[in-house]
Amino acid sequence: MSRSVLITGGNRGIGYSTVRAFIDRGDRVAFTHRTESASFDLVHDGALPLYCDVTDPEEVESAFKEAEASQGPVEVLVANAGITRDNLLPFMSEEDFATVLDTNLTASYRLAKRAVRGMLKARRGRIILVSSAVALKGEAGQTNYAASKAGLIGFGRSLAREIGSRGITVNIVAPGLTDTAMAAALPEERVAKIIGDVPLGRIGNPEEIASAIAFLASEEASYITGAVIPVDGGISMGH
């Protein structure tokens, strides 16, 4: 059965592949983007592009209203938008710390709060938060990013306890290093070192993350909630 899906940060990388995965499953998909025009092929294949800065409450509300008007109440929310502002702590500005938390963590609170309204009425829904293996194992130079992504785990598990009785699941996917623009911006020697620590010995691809997200939104995952699913080649095992 076709569902109404909203995916944030859906214009490239993991978000793009996730939009594609839900389209391929026959769902009605809306996706947010902020810094560039919407991907033509996603729009061509029926996805609804929504310009939205997830740190702006009014833009989030507007995006939900547009999605609801086009495809009905949101039944699946994938909170994927995220940024990095890496630096060692002594050199990290207050602004860089706060901006990363606002985009990666506070925006997910804002999105989930808005999505839950319709889900509670329907007594069903799926929320998937995209965290990171860094939240589990830590990473030098990423105290802000790790804090924001670890916060998603506590937020998601608490929300799962709040709304599970209404038939709504909340789960967290924690990708490792993935072949995206964010990874491409890293120095080659840094990428090589990270891959050297990955038991599977390679970088992940966005489609692998998208598959895990799509599974958690499926009927087959209806008894899974509050779970943290690492999709990281094993780099965070034991954490």
Results as ranks from 00 to 15, higher is better:
V231P: 00
L89M: 15
I14L: 09
L105M: 07
L50F: 11
S17D: 07
A221V: 02
A21N: 00
I128S: 03
R110D: 02
A133K: 10
A227K: 03
H44A: 15
I7P: 00
S218H: 02
A174F: 02
T103W: 04
T35H: 15
G238L: 03
T84N: 14
N205W: 12
V5Y: 03
R190P: 00
R3C: 13
V19S: 07
G176I: 05
D179Y: 06
G164H: 02
P49T: 14
V60P: 03
L77E: 04
I7C: 05
G82P: 00
S148P: 02
E59Q: 14
E59K: 07
A214P: 00
L89W: 13
K137L: 15
A63H: 01
I14N: 02
G164W: 03
G26E: 13
K137H: 14
T225F: 01
R114V: 07
E189K: 11
R161N: 01
I127E: 01
E208A: 12
D53W: 13
A98M: 07
T32H: 13
I194V: 15
A185I: 09
K121W: 08
I203R: 13
V74S: 03
R190N: 09
Y16A: 11
V134L: 07
V231A: 06
S4P: 00
V116M: 13
G125F: 08
G10F: 07
V170W: 01
L77G: 05
S108T: 09
I163T: 02
A214R: 00
T106A: 12
D179N: 14
G13H: 05
L111V: 06
L159Y: 03
A181Q: 10
D96P: 00
V100W: 06
E36Y: 10
G82A: 15
